[in-house]
Amino acid sequence: MKIQKLLLLVSLVGVCLLLLTLQTRGYGSAAGDLLTMVTAPVQTGLARASRATFGLWATYLDWKTVRAENHRLREEVQELRVRALRVSDTDVENQRLRRLLGLQEKLPLTTLSGEIIGREWGGWIRSLTVNRGRGDNIPRLSAVISPDGLVGRIVDVRPGASIVQVLTDPASTVGAHVLRTRTPGIVEGDPRGTLRFKFMARDGASIQNGDVLVTAGQGGLFPRGIPIGTVRAIDNRGAALFHYAELTPAVDYARVDEVLLVTGDTQRDLTAFFPADG
């Protein structure tokens, strides 16, 4: 057995040495050609397979890179969207504050700006909480206005905050008149959260939809000429003494964020300081 193994080794070594000798003497090309004929097709196949495999790998790597990039870009887009939202929010706030400041500067009244920090929007009460209170010397029943019109009045002054009764509160009443016809009446809030104008039938025959209502300025609480709303529908009650008009409020009470509190003299006509269309 051992001799067999040795014979194998010796014969293989002999073959190799023969091959080498033949090659060094210039006879080796035929053997090389024969072997190459066998190995070349296998090599070609393997080269193609390897190219395909590496191509697939490269595609996978590309896909992975693209996927990672896609993920990164998505995050970037998300971040930019958030940033854009913040910017647009800041922009809107900036515009609102500019309007408020503009109004404060041009009004011939002593006012104090305040920020809405709370809202009570149930059917029973409709009120806002403003961040101005006893420390700011806010008198009770001060008028609260925004650049769009009248918001309501202060009904309770607390340390650091005050409660504003909004015009749509069922207990709210404000003396008003139609800007175009000077028809006087009272604007009341109702439990549905809307405003209505109560006027004497004999005075209000000419009221039309779209008429603007402003504060009458009687009683000394509200300055004259602050927009309250526009007539949306007229409720003609026939022979009744009072008729009603449904109003669209000049101010979106649910969205108002900054207001002015009228702390001084209220005996001025402000009609010229607000848009004529309410």
Binding site: V13, L17, L20, Q23, L35
Partner: peptide
């Protein structure tokens, strides 16, 4: 050179 590695690897 054909046979060099054949020889070394066989051994």
């Amino acid at each position: 050179l054909i046979g060099v590695q054949a020889l070394t690897k066989a051994i």
